[in-house]
Amino acid sequence: MANPEQSIPVVAAENLRKCYGSFVAVNDISFNVGRGELFGILGPNGAGKTSTIRMIYGFSPLSGGSLTVFGKNVTTDWRSIRARLGVCHQDNNLDTEMSVRQNLEVFGTFFGIPAPVARKRATDLLEFFGLAHREKARVGELSGGLMRRLVLARALINEPELLILDEPTTGLDPQSRQQLWEQLARLKKRGVTILLTTHYMEEAAQLCDRLIIIDRGRILVEGRPRDLVGEYVGNQVIESSPVCEGLREFVKARKLDHEDLGHRLLIYCKNDEALYREITGQYCQDNCILRMGTLEDVFLKLTGRELRE
């Protein structure tokens, strides 16, 4: 039997708009998130990522466009939508006056989950996130990595169908970050739809099935991470730093797809080792490397390199 909800996108945004006074934070963006997908929203600081997800969980009123979650209208059905959502905020907004376990159980009561059920789920979540040995600890005693895990665990207390993560790994050490990624992958396997914002390109490339890059409130591109790399920067990048003599002229003469950053020159190419040999042979013996193209290259190429905010 086909479940009718199966075919409806979990999130469907159409010409979504958010203004703060005269400032347009989200400027008519449209995207869909399918069931079971891990979808990324990437963008520099102030691009409109957080504004977008705040509208999705019914925190911010829309300024324009339409937005449905589970096929329901966020403005009118916010309560039933939120019952099926888990949100992991950018800040560790845990209840510092309570213990690790209480944070989970009390959050369960906000969803109207009966105490015995919440207790059982808290036990499972503490186990899943490796927090069981710290269940009686005060939140203030936890390290940054443990706090992050607790925030994520708390977002799962209502067994959400959609998990929203706003920059979940900001400020974490590499170990904690890897571990969190692993946990997200496990959740995805269980069928949880995940919406993630981040400005760590490695994170997005590893985790996301599909993503959008937004800047100044607009969508610049949408696609699978690998496709985007292939399409916008090629699979390979020749990087010269400091820029070798004569290389600039060579690149211009050959009309190669490149970016000149002053002290660094990036040449985007598609599996062209001959080009690399030519360049290293003629211009640069040192100071020149051939590497894989990355999502970070795509991101910087599309959003520019100047500092934000």
Partner: peptide, 14 residues
Amino acid sequence: YQKTYDAIMATPLS
């Protein structure tokens, strides 16, 4: 400081 309200506003409470 604790942003407790922000957290609760992601649950079915107004």
